[in-house]
Amino acid sequence: MEANARDNTLLDVRALAVEFAAPRRGLRASIGRAPRAGVRVVDGVSLHIARGETLGLVGESGSGKSMTALALAGLVPKPGRIAGGTVRFEGRELTSLREAEWRRIRGARIGFVFQEPSSALNPVFTIGSQVAEALEVHGRASGSAARARAVELLDAVRIPRPAARADDYPHQWSGGMKQRALLAAAIACDPALLIADEPTTALDVRIQAEILDLLAELRDRLGLSLLVVTHDFGVVERLADRVAVMYAGRAVESGPAREVLAAPSHPYTRGLLASRPGATPGRRLAAIPGSVPDPAALPRGCAFAPRCPERIEACDERRPGATAIAPGREVRCLLREGTA
């Protein structure tokens, strides 16, 4: 198993924790004496991505899925910090890297595309120059060579007439086209891993499908590994080999995407899948009652217990550990402990 993992593993995350310093409260706080307690927004998340594999990271807002992705690219915003765990990428430990070292990996070995294509592009530079910049900052090309390569990249993401279009400014392009341009910049330096955080959420339905197809095509053609962060099981269905479902900062269930979608084990995954519209028109949806807990005030036991239809008394007392329920499948639920 270890030898196999060494050959094939691109990214191995163990027990990752991201913590934010909580705001000080009260009188002692105002004179700066109160100890700062950390709020854990990512707590003990383990993930594994093989070369060429696609992992879907699913969760609702506040689940910690985006923060996990940011941590993997060394982009946790202050006052947040990685508070524990290890991230091994291409055999290298990333959590201890300094910013200067990060800059050689981020954008070069790990590409990143974000949810909102408009805010990721600078309005005063041409699209072509911004794709070329991705090459220039990593010393891959400069001047007219970078420009020529940028046009090739725009062509690779299926921009029609890329040589003419490269001189356009971002406002001249629609959201879907801008997302393609950002993909071009993200793959410019041949990364091994592409992290896409809600890459289609801000786009129209038809454009969403096109971007997902493009992601799959680039992955297969360039041999990329893909981490797709999403709230949409449709995206998982379309792209992912494996899936990890997050709730309140923890990965509650993970496994092969097809198996998890067909037979979800954790009550939260089941609830989410059942709340999708469409199965029977006009039927009441199986909504999950209540809402996501505040990360600063998590229940002592299982974070999902207050909303869980299968809750037993022990759920309020003890945090469930990871249980392997099938090859490659893990779930954190007291009810599933001892079933393996």
Binding site: V205, H231, R284, A287
Partner: peptide, 29 residues
């Protein structure tokens, strides 16, 4: 979020049945 979305969708269906509400539902979904 999906789980909350389902609560609101259920509410619209209840309102239609209980109060006879007429609704124009603008969406891209």
């Amino acid at each position: 979020d999906l789980s909350i979305q389902a609560q609101i969708v259920n509410l619209f269906m209840d309102l239609q049945q209980q109060l006879g509400l007429t609704l124009l539902f603008i969406t891209h979904d």
